[in-house]
């Protein structure tokens, strides 16, 4: 990962890569320092407690949960809730657990991430290096479009997908993710490609490379870090989607988030909090792994989208 970060151009890295710029550090144990680290510690507890509770609850049996202390670690560790959440938990009449949602999400995720990134990276490249009349207008519409509440486009897209014959299918949802991922990803790639020296592009044209030649031979090999950022952004974003999953797929194709919500918030039966928390953790696991594995690149992804947007 360190190797990838080192390839990021200095301009793009400076926003976060540079060290703290604040006033000079003070003595180790001054009252100010105790206040500072004390506050940070309390804040960290607020952020970490839910994760702690999720894990602990998911490892307890129901009798132990009913005894009370939500924060206490399990006296008797059990993985039964995890097994049940994965393969037995019920949504409505189906009782085959979250595994179905997980595999649905995987099937949605892979093509969605692939297509949205391919389309957006070519887009960003064309916008920077092959500008044509009107290209900036479409880009502006795209960026403003990303602020429009999805609700206003929900139904027209239903009609669109129905006309194309892919309403209620995984491919319909893939198309929706490609469309709604386009603004932020195009912005990301456009900003990145415009930070590369323009003369490189000119040199390649003098060398006789065309639109695709320059994209694949010159731009792609130089852009691995930004592709990693885009993949992080899309994997977490698409995995966490709920609304599009509900609207554009059928129950047997529901992604994991939708199925999770249906399991936990179903009104029938006795609430099994340990199973619920195991299911919640399972659903959060993919973005959490991506987050912890990617480190600073995740931060860069959200900052790239935000600060320049």
């Amino acid at each position: 990962m360190a190797d990838i970060t080192s390839q990021i151009p200095a301009s793009a890295r400076s926003a976060l890569g540079s060290g703290p710029r604040g006033p000079k550090p003070r003595r180790r144990l001054s009252p100010g320092n105790i206040m500072l680290y004390g506050t940070l510690f309390v804040v960290s507890v607020y952020y970490l407690l839910p994760l702690w509770v999720m894990i602990m609850t998911s490892l307890k049996g129901m009798p132990e949960i009913r005894m009370g202390n939500i924060f206490a670690p399990p006296v008797e560790v059990t993985f039964q809730p995890w097994v049940k959440a994965w393969s037995e938990a019920c949504t409505g009449l189906n009782c085959d657990g979250l595994s179905r949602g997980f595999w649905n999400s995987v099937q949605i995720l892979i093509p969605s991430v692939f297509f949205s990134i391919i389309v957006a990276s070519i887009n960003g490249y064309a916008l920077v290096n092959w500008r044509f009349k009107g290209s900036d207008i479409f880009f502006t519409i795209l960026i403003f479009g990303s602020f429009i509440p999805y609700q206003i486009m929900l139904y027209p897209i239903v009609i669109l997908l129905r006309e194309m014959g892919i309403y209620g299918t995984l491919w319909g949802l893939v198309l929706v993710h490609t469309i709604f991922g386009m603004p932020i990803l195009t912005l990301l790639f456009r900003n990145y490609f415009s930070s590369l020296p323009e003369e490189l592009f000119k040199a390649a044209r003098v060398d006789g490379a065309g639109f695709w030649g320059i994209y694949f031979r010159i731009m792609l090999p130089m852009s691995l870090p930004i592709f990693v950022v885009a993949i992080i952004l899309q994997v977490t974003g698409i995995w966490n989607d709920f609304l599009f999953g509900v609207v554009y797929t059928k129950p047997e194709l529901y992604p994991m988030t939708v199925q999770l919500n249906n399991i936990v918030n179903s009104v029938q039966g006795v609430k099994e909090y340990n199973v619920n928390m195991a299911a919640t953790l399972l659903t959060g696991l993919v973005p959490l792994i991506v987050y912890f594995a990617s480190g600073k690149l995740f931060v860069r992804g959200i900052a790239a989208g935000a600060v320049k947007g």
Binding site: P197, E199, L200, K202, A203, R205, V206, G208, A209, M222
Partner: peptide, 20 residues
């Protein structure tokens, strides 16, 4: 004509060497 069809070679200020 396309740049490559003009019978020219070009040298840039920033060298513009393909880094990879």
């Amino acid at each position: 004509a396309e740049p490559s069809e003009r019978g020219i070679g070009m040298v840039f200020q920033s060298y513009a060497l393909y880094p990879q």
